[in-house]
Write a protein that binds this DNA or RNA. Structure first.
Lengths: 236, 236, 236, 236
DNA sequence: GATGAATGAGTGTTCATTCAT
DNA sequence: GATGAATGAACACTCATTCAT
């Protein structure tokens, strides 16, 4: 409540358009914040405005209505994540590497912005119907892309042919989601980097080789994915 | 408008207490229904009363307030599920059998009452804080029980010692949840028994042996779990 | 604010339905009141509730929304007036008698309920479009009925054939309306019965015989209309 | 969005004051337009600005606030009309000629600017109080001027002495208003010049000689008023 | 002067909860 | 117990007005 985004005092060189885009972003960010604290329905426009440090009415200057605002919250968060996942899928590596890459992306996102991830995890794809927010669309599209990947892996003989690819995809994201939920809900209280790394590895490993066949990580290295993709992810 | 669900007029031999318990159940059931259709916040007391065929105010005779009503919805659904899961865990079989048992329980519940499961899946553990319903509690308890089971399995040497048991537990339920979500969200459109059986088997198999090591089901049998536990589940 | 409709303390014999209808009427009456004081747009639900001495939300128990409430205000007032006018038209007397009858009805209504008439006069048929209240409909229907009457009078040779009947009708109501407006707006400050009677006679007389041909009322009698219709109007 | 109504770029010879007066007029005209379309309360500043093709805030450079803007709308329209009516009254002709002149002025105004007349007719003198626009003042002044005229006519013996002059005046404008309302509301659908002329004649004739004594126009001439005043009106 | 982003009070409507019958 | 009318706080959204550029 004390200080509101005092960071980066805007240089006078900013154009009006820049400042407007900024405002929009500030409001969006505030919405994510409030949203993650109070959930979809607990999120009142008044709170968002207060959090963003702007007047009530201004929210309506930038967003048609509450639904559009929240839709944007989802879209902006999801967009980012979705893009990275798609990039992993597109690498064309062995499916194991790609799975590891996807898991990596998800956990990195959490490390960077736990709040945002929480919102996405706890609200995306939920809310049964209700005329509201079309989160399902974005959600489905990740699932479908991953399912495509598994189908391809089956053609290449990398995974058994009898598996239903869509189910593989949902399970992958289910494992990731719940792995993260452990943190989000405080079931796994240590949120230090090492814990997150370990959880990430375990999720990938278990998903790939099963509970019974899971192997311990070769060393204490926290960023284990095979050579070629390591940098791109870490740098972004 | 006068009478709803007049079927099965209870014999007059019912005690007053019985009739009251009945009413309570009717209202609870109606709440589940409305809830699954409209979600937590879309669920208005008026709708529940209408669905149950009782007067507006009567809901408040049986439930202190909306939150208590919804809490009960969760509790009653969860209670059931939780009991069955605990029973599986208590069998003391090899962890693989117990995992299969748990998966089985979840999918059976879905087969029996998709609506109820939908509610549990789409709303449980979500909605961060908000003064509302303490679903987390029930949810956490299942996780913890399963984590206990995995810890024990590690002591017995059934699964690798380096795995974080809590994470194993969350992943298990994450896989199950997302497997069911596939149906709930219509990603897997076939809801026939065979499809559900196949999905169930795949979830258990992949969780146990991994994506790469998953083996096809030995035959077309749809209820594969090892001998001793089959009846109890099916009969209930 | 001190006393709220204390009149006619309801006997305990009233049925629930009776009391509800009463409430509805009380709210409607309050709406007329507020409406006449503040006009269509100045009329806030809160004010109506306060005026009626009921809770805010109760207004919405009886009326779907503000528009429906105001629509009802018009309808109820108009209905009454319209009925009486139609009755005059239906008498089949010479057109002069019927015109006098209509003027009589309008002025009587004003004498009985100046507030209500004010609302009707100042708001009916105005408000250009706006998705709002369909006052025009009711308004047009009186005009059309009167136009029919004039057409018939032309067939009978009671008035010149070259007159446009619709225009005669609008002029009749225009004269009446403005006559009343004189009172409503305070241009004619004396509101005593004698003044109202005199104004009424002058309106009828001028409309029928023109400014130049208007004859003074035969005597000081205030209820001049020819024999047959006098009682019915006065008694109602 | 950049430029609206760029047509007729004014020659640079215009003085600054001229350009400002122009702007003012453009905004006023836009206000009339929006006003006639949406009514007093439906008329938003934003709409006026858009209609005028100027920036939102500019309206506030020329008008202190919404009320002043609308007041000006009335004033400007009314001023014009009032002036012409006063001119008719001042002619000192026989009252019949003056009445015809006034009716003529009103119908001419409608022919020239139906929109503007609609606004005046449908909104003037309505909206009881409300802190808003003092239309009543302008309205009353016409009535009073006409009443003066009738008083004078009574002194001259042109009309019966028993008539209340104010009432004569309100009836005159009531007849005119409703005659025009027939057009405004579409009750009389033909808006061609001949129809308007006929309506005008009928209104004057009926008002002067009454429904029963109204005489048909001597010929098909559409501008019948007696010699001396015809030009002044038509030319303006 | 011209622009349109920013402000915030005002209002219609919903809905959980209470209570008289 | 059963009923549904009554209550009023809460909240989304609008729009006149101001002000920095």
């Amino acid at each position: 409540m004390a200080d509101k985004a005092p960071a980066a005092k805007k240089p006078q060189t900013q154009s009006r358009a820049d400042r407007e885009a900024d405002r929009r972003r500030v409001i969006l960010r505030a919405a994510v914040e409030v949203f993650s604290r109070k959930g979809y329905h607990g999120c009142r426009i008044q709170d968002v405005a207060k959090e963003a440090g702007v007047a009530y009415g201004l929210v309506y200057h930038y967003f048609k209505n509450k639904d559009e605002l929240l839709e944007s919250v989802f879209a902006s968060g999801w967009q980012n994540f979705l893009g990275r996942v798609q990039a992993e899928i597109a690498t064309d590596h062995h499916v194991a590497a790609r799975v590891k890459g996807i898991v990596h992306v998800a956990f990195e996102a959490y490390r960077r912005d736990p709040r945002g991830v929480k919102v996405l995890i706890l609200e995306v794809g939920r809310s049964p119907a209700g005329g509201a927010v079309n989160r399902g669309g974005a959600f489905s599209s990740v699932i479908l892309a991953a399912a495509e990947m598994f189908k391809e892996a089956q053609r290449r003989g990398e995974i058994p042919a009898h598996l239903e690819p869509t189910l593989c995809a949902t399970m992958l994201f289910g494992s990731i989601e719940m792995g993260l939920t452990s943190f989000v809900m405080g079931l796994l209280d240590k949120r230090d980097d090492a814990s997150i790394d370990r959880a990430r590895d375990q999720v990938a490993e278990t998903f790939l080789h099963g509970l019974t066949g899971a192997r311990p990580p070769p060393a204490m290295v926290s960023v284990p994915p095979p050579a070629p993709r390591a940098r791109s992810r870490t740098t972004s």
